[in-house]
């Protein structure tokens, strides 16, 4: 299931939904707004329609590749504060290995394949976040 929107993400609720499917193993990744480098607010922009479609393609690929029972990506957009959940990725499978691998695949590829843009405000100054080369390398390791 894919959700992209401005509502606060409740990781416990997301986890409960994954647990309901009878899986033997669940893996989750929860990304938070970092508070340790002076960021006051983070704003997330997306490409409505294209973003959801890109996330759905990733979920479909993960389900097929790892035989998942369930997979969820919930990504917040709009303004948020340090400590807020930006993204929740969760995978449910019969055993731990496919759940863990599929969860890593989804967050790594989300970073390079889904149209989101981050803008930080710190000390009254705003700047668009630059992509990191390490993100490309992390995504590339899942190429088949």
């Amino acid at each position: 299931m894919i959700v992209v929107g401005p509502a606060r993400i409740n990781a416990a609720e997301q986890f409960a939904a994954l647990s309901a499917g009878g899986a033997g193993g669940i893996a989750t990744f929860v990304g938070l707004v970092r508070a340790d480098d002076g960021v006051a607010t983070l704003e997330l922009e997306h490409y409505p329609g294209a973003t959801e479609a890109a996330l759905q393609r990733l979920v479909d690929e993960a389900r097929e590749r790892w035989g998942l029972i369930d997979a969820r990506i919930t990504h917040r957009v709009g303004a948020m504060a340090p400590g807020d959940v930006v993204v929740f990725v969760g995978t449910a499978a019969a055993h731990r290995a496919p759940a863990l691998e599929a969860c890593a695949f989804l967050i790594d590829r989300l970073k390079t394949d889904a149209p989101f843009w981050k803008k930080e405000t710190r000390g009254g100054e705003t700047r668009w976040v630059e992509p990191r080369g390490s993100d490309d390398a992390a995504a590339a390791r899942w190429s088949v």
Binding site: V87, L110, K111, F116, K118, V129, E130, P131
Partner: peptide, 10 residues
Amino acid sequence: VAIFPPVTGG
């Protein structure tokens, strides 16, 4: 046609 910077989500 959409034009944009490299993406930075997650």
